[in-house]
């Protein structure tokens, strides 16, 4: 892992700031988190936790309780870990706008610094998966896309569709499209298993495999379509729709045209 690739990440600067703040010991713990869900209790700075606590009281406590212990409107956050908070807040799911079957992805309400403060605060409530370090996440750049494809089809496609375009689950729930998820978000989603998604712990899906899956999803995002328009990559349903609208429309119009052209 080189500094050059690290700097390419939009979140690199604040992350570095955090890393310096929590010191070398915590750094080691964070990298370790790649292999064993670590307690992100690696002593985040008092000021950060205090800031997080204030933000939490303001924006989250109404549903999750003043000490994150949970209310009827939101689950307990004790032990969900920094990774869960980071995922939920950067994808804009939290703070939840209104109770719904499922929290929707939307533009985030907090900047990077505030997000990390919230994560530090919740991490201090109880041990849980830490935010994976930049170097661990970045391993996807050298990972095998083909292996990732196989792992993706075994572990993810049944909910997120073969091309990561999303799919329906029961009772109005759905697995969203993965086309706008960043590698860090994908990593955190696997670590924390948001809502009806299962947790893919490092014991069952080791970090190398996670990197391969991310490599496959990143490849899907930019892979060109050799066959032309992809019709959303939803499979035969949109193909059928195209056939019965544009396709048969064109042929029947041609039949009418020729039919009218007599002599």
């Amino acid at each position: 892992m080189t500094g050059r690739t690290l700097r390419r990440q939009p979140w690199a600067a604040p992350a570095l700031l955090l890393l310096t703040l929590i010191g070398v010991g915590a750094l080691v713990a964070a990298i370790d988190a790649g292999t064993q869900p670590a307690t992100a209790s690696g002593a985040p700075s008092q000021t950060q936790v205090a800031k997080g606590s204030a933000l939490f009281a303001e924006g989250c406590a109404s549903c999750h309780g003043p000490a994150g212990e949970g209310t009827t409107d939101g689950p307990s956050l004790i032990g969900v870990g920094a990774a869960s908070v980071d995922f939920q807040v950067t994808t804009g799911r939290m703070p939840l706008a209104a109770p719904n079957v499922q929290a929707m992805r939307k533009p985030p309400s907090y900047d990077r610094e505030e997000t990390l403060a919230l994560a530090a605060y919740v991490a201090a409530l109880g041990p849980g998966p830490a935010i994976p370090s930049g170097s661990v996440v970045d391993e996807w750049r050298d990972a095998s896309v083909a292996k990732g494809g196989e792992l993706f089809r075994v572990n993810c496609a049944q909910c997120h569709n073969f091309a990561g375009r999303g799919g329906a689950l029961s009772d109005g729930r759905y697995a969203p499209s993965l086309m706008s998820s960043t590698p860090l978000e994908i990593y955190e989603a696997m670590l924390t298993g948001p809502q009806s998604m299962p947790v893919f712990a490092d014991t069952s899906l080791p970090p190398e495999s996670k990197a391969e899956i991310i490599a496959y999803i990143e490849n899907l995002k930019q892979e060109p379509n050799p066959g032309g328009l992809d019709l959303g990559r939803f499979g035969p349903v949109t193909e059928g729709l195209f056939l019965w609208t544009a396709g048969m429309g064109a042929l029947v119009a041609a039949a009418i045209w020729i039919g009218a052209r007599v002599r």
Binding site: A157, H160, N161, F162, R165, A175, P236, V237
Partner: peptide
């Protein structure tokens, strides 16, 4: 052991 969301037949088996 694999299956994907959006597994569908072609339209005429729909």
């Amino acid at each position: 052991d694999q299956v994907t969301a959006g597994s569908q037949p072609d339209w005429y088996i729909g």
